[in-house]
Design a protein around this nucleic acid. Structure first.
Ligand code: MN
Ligand code: MN
Ligand code: ZN
Ligand code: ZN
Lengths: 132, 132
DNA sequence: CACTTTTTTAGAATCGTTATAAACTAGAAA
DNA sequence: TTTCTAGTTTATAACGATTCTAAAAAAGTG
């Protein structure tokens, strides 16, 4: 398995559940956005298997901490995650409630002209809301 | 009262509760960021009064719909609102969990080079995460 | 005032997320 | 292999922000 090393290197034991979640998250052509529930459903269908919701939460948070997933800053009743961990931005379609990637190269350079004393910038994320 | 007209013009009856919430929200030198709970507490202290939580929720949502408040897109267990309804951006201090305004003039012009078919841009918001 | 519509309210319900604690498992040591 | 231990999974309970409910109160109208 190609994910065993990845997990071990992160100090995470390569358990059956984690490897299966890796498959669903990372064995894809394209990256995607998901909620915990989306992911739980995908696991059930795609792997014909059920992993405890608690484990899905735990794993997603562990992966996020390790930098294998990103949380998308958006207001929703559910938290959205992204398998695209590159520096990039998002469109949010207000009508369809859907997220669309907006690559950093598709946004002109962003200059932040204000400094906050004693703090440094960790990330700069743009959210573009769309209407019809 | 200076808010009676404002409310009437919005099709909202100027009730005692709404007028009091207006006072707390808009009778300030500076704009500010708040959660529903922040606001409920402020009402209790500042006006020595208690307004039902349901009413605070109702009013904040009504004001947001009318454009008197903005919701700030951020991941938190609570929803953040802003009395600054101008187009502007935010720093988010990850350690202190605090929001700081970043005026549009303090960010270089943002060019969105990607178009989504049949959709138009409603807003462009930047979130700058800060660490020590 | 009489009447209708909107608003407020306490409390219940909802639901995403987190905590709990017992059973299980991976990895290492013996 | 067997034993040991720390890490993991799991079902379920707890939590908490938000929404819903339905009855009482207030606002607007004539
Ligand atoms: Mn959230
Ligand atoms: Mn929220
Ligand atoms: Zn994305
Ligand atoms: Zn602001």
């Amino acid at each position: 398995m190609k994910y065993i090393e990845k997990l071990r290197n992160s100090g995470l034991r390569p358990t059956k559940q984690r490897l299966q979640i890796c498959e669903v998250l990372f064995d894809t052509e394209k990256t995607f956005h998901f909620t915990i529930n989306d992911l739980a459903n995908k696991i059930r269908k795609q792997l014909n298997n059920k992993i405890s919701l608690a484990t899905v939460y735990n794993t997603v948070h562990a992966f996020e901490k390790k930098g294998y997933l990103k949380q998308i800053p958006i207001n929703s009743n559910q938290t959205y995650f992204d398998t695209n961990v590159s520096d990039h931005h998002h469109f949010y379609d207000l009508k369809d409630e859907k997220l669309i990637d907006l690559e950093a190269s598709e946004v002109g350079p962003i200059k932040i002209l204000k400094q906050i004393n004693g703090k440094k910038i960790k990330s700069v994320e743009v959210l573009v809301k769309l209407e019809d």
